[in-house]
């Protein structure tokens, strides 16, 4: 199977390393980062591209753009793993449209296009007889989308809720364990690379909210936007509040919740018993689903990270390979 890889940051490099390390029958014929691109129908030397990137150089040639790779490279699947733009989803949205029009499957970890334009993209994929897969957009390594679409097919989901943001979970874990203030825990998360220089997207619950929108729109048949999510972040939490919770054998976690029947999407800090399955430590994610046939299920796993997110992308790629792509 031949893929074009757009994005050579943490996720893109994780995919490249996995392809190098394992025999996955995947050849990369197109590669682009934000500054450069490479097209090689015989397969790009990923080890060399990783080395260039490691030295702070562009991964390819400056006169080849991501759009060139999408439009001109010879590939079966476009793997779109550039950073999320929550407002317009561009430039990823345009690249995905173009690939689908070229009858290419698309696998993405980018939340923007899926949250903003899923119905359109899905229709476009169907019209062109190709797959559009996005497992890596929600909860990193946890195969949640696959479990909901395939494993739990036929179930009616009455409620879906959980810990969707590892950065917030890390901060709250540390505040509870060490009595740190929010600011101290955030500084620690930054030092460890769990939080961005501008942590707004995580700590204000935007990241969790956009994941809810993706699940609502693609799995639960709802039509929602980010503005429909009732959202409260964790920035105002105090160590005292966590202590008061602990006095009652509870703690506080940032919980995203969807109740389809009520049309309700909500992200907010919630009081939760310490023994509850959703109380996970550190940067882990955890999601509970309440269904009519299967009962209640809880999924726990790493929600971010280079290799972990690559795992979700590779899962999608091999799904397509096993069902559609001939040869390798």
């Amino acid at each position: 199977m031949r893929i074009a890889l757009l994005g050579f940051g943490s996720v893109g490099r994780g995919i490249a390393r996995a392809i190098l390390a394992k025999d996955l029958s995947i050849t990369v014929t197109g590669l682009a980062d934000s500054r450069s691109g490479l097209i090689d129908p015989d397969g790009i030397d990923l080890a060399a591209a990783l080395a260039r990137k490691g030295n702070g150089d562009p991964c390819g040639l400056p006169d080849t753009s991501p759009a060139d790779v999408v439009a001109k490279a010879d590939y079966d699947v476009l793997v779109e793993v550039t950073p999320t733009n929550v407002e317009t989803a561009e430039p990823a949205l345009g690249h995905i449209r173009e690939a689908l029009r070229r009858h290419k499957h698309v696998v993405t970890s980018n939340k923007g296009p899926i949250a903003i334009a899923y119905p359109e993209l899905r229709a476009l994929a169907e019209a062109n007889g190709v797959f559009l897969k996005y497992e890596a957009t929600v909860c990193g390594a946890i195969p949640l989308i696959h479990a909901l679409q395939e494993g739990l097919a036929g179930n009616t989901i009455s409620r879906l809720y959980g810990v969707f943001n590892g950065t917030c979970n890390y901060i709250l874990t540390r505040m509870a364990a060490e009595g740190l203030t929010y600011e101290q825990a955030l500084a620690e998360a930054r030092e460890l690379g769990y939080a961005e220089a501008d942590p707004t997207y995580d700590v204000e619950g935007i990241d969790a909210a956009i994941k809810l929108v993706i699940l609502a729109n693609t799995i639960l048949g709802m039509q929602t936007t980010l503005a429909d999510v009732e959202r409260t972040g964790i920035t105002l939490l105090t160590p005292d509040a966590l202590q008061l919770a602990e006095d009652q054998d509870c703690t506080i976690r940032l919980i995203g919740e969807i109740v389809p029947e009520a049309g309700a999407l909500r992200v907010s800090p919630r009081l939760i018993p310490e023994v509850h399955p959703l109380v996970v430590e550190g940067t882990l994610n955890a999601v509970s689903v309440e269904t009519d046939l299967a009962g209640e299920l809880t999924f726990i796993g790493k929600g971010a990270g280079s290799t972990e997110t690559a795992s979700a992308v590779i899962g999608d790629l091999l799904y397509i390979q096993s069902r559609h792509v001939q040869g390798s």
Partner: peptide
């Protein structure tokens, strides 16, 4: 004020 509500079972 910030209110932290309990996570109840549905």
């Amino acid at each position: 004020l910030l209110i932290i509500e309990p996570l109840e079972d549905a």
